[in-house]
Amino acid sequence: MASGDHGTLYVGVTRDLQRRVEQHRAKAVAGFTKRYGVGRLVHAQGFGDVRDAITFEKRLKRWRRDWKARLIEETNPRWEDLYLHMTAAPPATPCSWIPDSHSAASGMTDWRAAVLESWTLKF
């Protein structure tokens, strides 16, 4: 987490990322993140085993700041708040059956007109 673009950094481990980020953003927990205004999720990494996550957290806390920044920028070069993406509603998916001009021109969607034309009496 960060306080802003290239701001104060915070590293932590949690089982419930969304809940933990919401706590930091609401300043509900006294401590480092509240004191330094850290509330922007800029990097997250999943682990299958909590022990692996804790080992990585301890290693990451010893990293130089520029190494941490490089890690963030590999997947989030603009330091965007990933929490906003995580909680955003998925985009609406357009119906796939709506014909486009190519389908309509091929006659794939204009079957009714062909049937009606075949039933029309011609003189």
Rank of each mutant, 00 (worst) to 15 (best):
D66L: 06
M86W: 13
R64T: 06
R64Y: 11
L60D: 00
D81G: 11
E57M: 12
A89F: 09
E73R: 12
E73Q: 14
W67L: 08
W79F: 15
F56D: 06
I72Q: 01
H85A: 14
H85V: 14
I72E: 01
R64L: 12
E80S: 13
A69E: 09
D66C: 06
T55S: 13
L82C: 01
F56P: 00
N76M: 05
E74Q: 13
R62P: 00
K58P: 04
W67K: 15
R64N: 09
M86A: 09
D66N: 13
W67T: 09
R59P: 00
I72R: 01
A69G: 00
W67N: 04
K68W: 04
M86N: 05
K58E: 09
E80I: 11
R62W: 01
A88Y: 12
T87C: 08
A88H: 12
A89P: 06
E57Y: 10
K68A: 10
K68R: 15
R62M: 05
R64H: 14
K61S: 05
T75D: 03
E74N: 04
R70F: 05
R62D: 04
E73F: 05
I72M: 03
P77R: 15
E57P: 05
Y83E: 03
R65L: 00
Y83L: 09
W63Y: 13
D81N: 15
L71E: 07
A89V: 13
Y83D: 03
K68C: 06
R62I: 00
Y83W: 12
D81K: 14
A69R: 12
W67E: 09
A88E: 11
R62L: 06
D81E: 07
R70M: 09
K61D: 00
L60W: 02
R65T: 00
K61G: 03
E80N: 13
M86P: 00
W67Y: 08
E74T: 02
F56Y: 12
W79R: 11
P77N: 11
F56L: 11
M86L: 15
R70K: 15
H85R: 15
L82Y: 03
R78C: 07
L60G: 00
E80W: 08
T75L: 07
W67F: 08
L82N: 04
W79P: 04
A69F: 14
L60C: 01
L84D: 04
M86S: 06
W63A: 06
Y83F: 15
N76P: 02
L60V: 04
E57A: 14
W63L: 07
E57C: 10
L71S: 03
K68Q: 10
K61E: 04
R62Y: 02
W79S: 05
R64A: 14
E74W: 02
E57N: 08
T75P: 01
H85F: 12
E74C: 02
P77C: 10
W67R: 14
H85D: 10
E73N: 10
T75Q: 08
M86G: 02
W63H: 10
L60S: 02
K61V: 10
P77M: 09
A88S: 13
T55L: 14
L71K: 06
K58H: 13
W79A: 05
N76V: 01
M86T: 11
K61N: 04
L82R: 15
E73P: 04
P77E: 08
K68T: 10
M86R: 15
E80H: 14
